[in-house]
Every structure is written in structure tokens, then in C-alpha cells.
Design a protein around this nucleic acid. Structure first.
Length: 457
RNA sequence: GGACGGGUAGCCAAGUGGUUAGGCAUCGGUUUGCAAAACCGCGUACACGGGUUCGAGUCCCGUCCCGUCCUCCA
């Protein structure tokens, strides 16, 4: 089966064909590094990792580019708002540059722990100021820009299909519904270059032909993707929130400058919902991977959790559903570990597994195939070999899993030995009393064929 | 308010016209001195009201609710 992917631009699933034979260029929008990534952010990167692994599984060489937005953009009011990096700098006492480095590293560490394959290229907005200035200059020479007192703006009405990606109903947009329009001429116009405020020293600012300032948010992606992947590349990814503004504007810039719609496929990961509410990084209230780990979950538990829903569906987060994923995954690990040596993989199960993944990355269905295999009558060595192949896409590191080492205090060990003695003597009352005592110390004793085993309870 | 996208059994979640998706939990069973763990078995649910059709969770209309965007956001 050929690879089918949903393209937001066409609003349909269509057959993926690379622009260059055997090679796929992917650009994925990365984070603004003013705070830790929350688990909702991370869901999108897990989707992109799945996409990449499926492409590789289909035999493509993937060139994967992720940007780091390390220059601030406005937080609120278009004219006077502080930007997120400056704000983060005040909050933490770090300079904006230190802040960027700190949160970039934290983000990369999260991805590594989630077993997300590292991109081929990480690119920072601040390392590509000249490319962005050149891009804006080109737009200016083609007549798509105008200046106001606070910046250089893109004149969106010069494009006749502005907003096609999001199917924007331009007339229905409420200008100023949520933000002051400033001197923008039209509701969908956006900043390409912003001037530094006269009365304030910014930490991050650069000279430009239009005056000292900093680049607009959208221009970095058009400029950097063009540099690393060309003017028209295979797949551009990001979160669903990027469809109406960020990606719409990226397309507008690139169409105006290069005449292409930037990417052949536009793919979007959908939000993780928290109690039916959006998990917002800007609100400061959010769950991080570290919090999950503190609560006894592993990054793989979260990885598996995300796989239980399709990337194009919003997903509800709850501790209960994360626990369900944890239980399922540990059963998968234990089953895998119990199977001994791997033999030959089942072509039939592999085919079905890959067929679902090639159907717009339907991981929930692919996982159903995994469970069908696990609970089938196939010989253990076949199950093991098959899952080993599937794990190249799953990325759960099934072969590396080991039961958690439990450090049992001597006192508990002694109690367990006493209990075993009582059991041998068939003194059940004493054995049960000792088990209760062990339990009160936070441990559980399980009687297996190989004798009693003490675990954390 | 508008555009776009959703509402599936206790929970998470696949599925777009007609044959049980799957996982977790509950319950029953195997096992165990009893447990635990593990394994096996077990669920006809599709927001609500109309309509189309031989047949609808799946298509159409209306209503209610949720999300995305119209500030920065994965």
C-alpha cells in the first residue's frame, strides 16, 4: 500500500509522492524557548517522530529540520506589549540569550527521553537574521510590504488567495476582537520586521535597512526552510493552532516571494486537552514531562499514551487514562521479555501493521494489530521477531526494557524470609500477618514458582 | 459573532452506509493455602430532535455542548 497522508492544504488524504525520488524534506515548527515544553507541546513532536519513522520505514531518506524560535514576539498589545523572551528573562533573572539556551536544552532533553529521533538540522531564528532581512527585502522589492511607525508589514490583500490553507473567511474576521490593530491597514496583515521601542533597550535587536529591531514571527520559518530545504519541499508540520495564522502567513510570504506554497503537504498535530480546557504554555499552568516522571510514569508511558489516539484528533488527558497506558505498556514489555529468542517475523502481521500506518499514520489501529498478535497463537519467537520490527516505528525500545530494580531494605527481606518459613510450616495466620507488615512498609510480596518476590507496592 | 473541526459504552480511543477495532477498569474464570501478578472470558455504545435509505454512529437539516483561530501558542 502506498503512503497516504492528510494534507491540510487540500483538506484530504492523498498519496504521498516525494518531490525528489527517495528523499523527503520535512520542516517542523519548533518551540518558542521562553519556558519548559508541556506535554501538549510534546504530543506534536511525538506525531512528527511517528511521521518520520513511517517515512523511513517506507524507504525514504528524510531530511528533518526543526527551528528554535529564540527571539521574542509580542505577548499582548501590538504596540506596547513586551515579548515573551524579555518577559521570561525578567521572570528567571537570566538574560534572554541564557534563557533561550536553557529552555532549548531542556526541550531537547525531553525529546531525547521520549525517544524522538533527533532532527538532521536544528536552526535558531537568531542565527538567521540576515536570511530573514533578505527575505523581507525581496518582498519589499516585489511590492508586498508597507511601513508603519512600529514596523514593516506584509500587505495581505496583494495576494488573491490569502488564507486558503485555513479556508479563512476574511470578511468574517473581527478586526480587533482580541487585539489592538495598531496601524495595520488590514486585519490579516502581519509584521515582517518590528522596530525596537524608542524608550526601551531590548536585549535582542539587530540593524536592518528599515531600522533597528527584530524579525516578525512568521518570517523565520519561510527564510530558514528555504535555506535548508528549498522553496518548495515535501512536508511542513506543526500544531493545529498554526493553521489560521502562522502557517497561513508563511505561505503568504513564500507565495509572494517565491511563487510556491512552501510545502507539498501540510500536516498538523491536534491538541491535548486538559479537563476539556486548552493546555496553555502562556498561562503558566501546565504539565511537563518531569511532573509525569515525578508521579511515577516513564517517558515511554507518555509516548505510548499518545499513540492510542490518532494525531488528527484532539485527545483528553487524565491521570486515569495515562495509568491505563502505563498498565498496557508494562504488559507489553513483560510479554516481550518473556518470549525468549526471536525467530522469523510474521509477514502477515507486519503487512497489516504497516498498512494501517501508511493509512495516514493510524497508530491506534496499528496498536490493535500489535495486541492481536500478542494474544494470538503465533509461536513466541514469531511474536518477538515481529514486534522487534514494529518497534522501529513504535520506538518503545522493547528489547532494552528491564524490570525495575527494587531496592529492598534488609528489614523487609528478613520479614519476607520469616513469612516464607511460616508458609513452609503452613502457619497461614503468621504468614498473612507478616505480609501485612511488609505491606505497611510499602512493599508487596508475591509468591511465584521461583519463590517469593518482593516488589514496591 | 464568524470560519474551521469535534461530541462513540465507566475512562481513553478507532471506525464515514450493511460483517465484534483496540487498550484500561469492572465482573466471572484459571492459578494461589488465601492473596498478588499473569493469563482466559465478558460490553450492540455512537450528544439531542427530525429527515433520506431496504438499511445510518457513518449522509442531510435543526438544536445543545466542546475545541482551534480572529493576541502569543504544539
Amino acid at each position: 500500500m502506498t503512503l497516504q497522508l492528510f494534507d491540510t492544504y487540500e483538506r484530504k488524504v492523498r498519496t504521498f509522492e516525494p518531490l525528489k525520488s527517495g528523499e523527503v524534506g520535512i520542516y517542523a515548527c519548533g518551540p518558542t524557548v521562553y519556558n519548559f515544553a508541556h506535554i501538549g507541546n510534546l504530543r506534536t513532536y511525538l506525531f512528527e517522530d511517528l511521521l518520520k519513522r513511517v517515512l523511513i520505514g517506507n524507504g525514504y531518506r528524510v531530511n528533518h529540520v526543526v527551528n528554535i524560535t529564540d527571539v521574542g514576539h509580542l505577548t499582548s498589545d501590538a504596540d506596547t506589549g513586551e515579548d515573551k523572551m524579555e518577559l521570561g528573562s525578567k521572570r528567571t533573572g537570566m538574560t534572554a540569550w541564557e534563557l533561550a539556551t536553557f529552555y532549548t536544552e531542556a526541550f531537547q532533553k525531553d525529546l531525547e527521553r521520549l525517544n524522538v529521533r533527533s532532527p538532521d538540522i536544528w536552526c535558531k531564528a537568531t542565527d538567521h537574521i540576515q536570511e530573514q532581512i533578505d527575505f523581507v527585502s525581496d518582498l519589499e522589492s516585489k511590492g508586498f510590504t508597507y511601513c508603519t511607525s512600529d514596523g514593516v508589514y506584509f500587505d495581505s490583500r496583494k495576494l488573491n488567495n490569502y488564507g486558503y490553507l485555513a479556508r479563512l473567511d476574511i470578511d468574517g474576521l473581527q478586526a480587533g476582537a482580541r487585539v489592538n490593530q495598531g496601524e495595520r491597514r488590514f486585519v490579516t496583515d502581519f509584521a515582517l520586521w518590528k522596530f525596537s521601542p524608542e524608550d526601551e533597550q531590548r536585549q535582542m535587536e539587530w540593524d536592518s535597512p528599515w531600522g533597528k529591531g527584530f524579525p516578525g514571527w512568521h518570517i523565520e520559518c519561510s527564510a530558514m526552510s528555504a535555506k535548508y530545504l528549498g522553496d518548495f519541499f515535501d512536508i511542513h508540520c506543526g500544531g493545529e493552532d498554526h493553521i489560521p495564522i502562522h502557517h497561513t502567513n508563511e505561505i503568504a510570504q513564500t507565495e509572494a516571494s517565491r511563487g510556491s506554497r512552501l510545502a507539498n503537504f501540510w500536516m498538523h498535530g491536534y491538541f491535548l486537552q486538559m479537563d476539556n480546557a486548552k493546555m496553555a504554555k502562556s498561562s503558566g499552568e501546565f504539565l511537563t514531562l518531569d511532573v509525569l516522571i515525578e508521579r511515577g510514569f516513564t517517558p515511554f508511558d507518555y509516548r505510548y499514551f499518545c499513540f492510542t489516539a490518532h494525531y488528527r484528533s484532539q485527545m483528553s488527558f487524565s491521570w486515569k487514562s495515562l495509568e491505563a497506558a502505563q498498565t498496557a505498556l508494562s504488559r507489553l514489555y513483560e510479554a516481550f521479555a518473556s518470549w525468549g529468542q526471536a525467530g522469523d517475523a510474521s509477514e502477515e502481521y507486519l503487512a497489516r501493521f504497516h498498512e494501517f500506518l501508511n493509512d495516514d499514520l493510524n497508530m491506534p489501529r496499528a496498536l490493535a494489530v500489535i495486541w492481536e498478535l500478542v494474544r494470538s497463537d503465533e509461536p513466541d519467537e514469531v511474536k518477538k521477531a515481529t514486534l522487534l520490527v514494529c518497534d522501529e516505528v513504535l520506538g518503545l525500545d522493547l528489547a532494552d526494557w528491564e524490570p525495575e530494580e527494587v531496592i529492598v531494605p534488609d528489614e523487609v527481606l528478613r520479614l519476607a524470609e520469616d513469612r516464607e518459613g511460616a508458609r513452609q510450616a503452613k502457619d497461614w495466620a503468621k504468614a498473612d500477618a507478616l505480609r501485612d507488615e511488609i505491606s505497611s512498609l510499602g512493599f508487596a510480596v508475591e509468591d511465584t514458582r521461583e519463590g517469593p518476590v518482593v516488589t514496591k507496592s
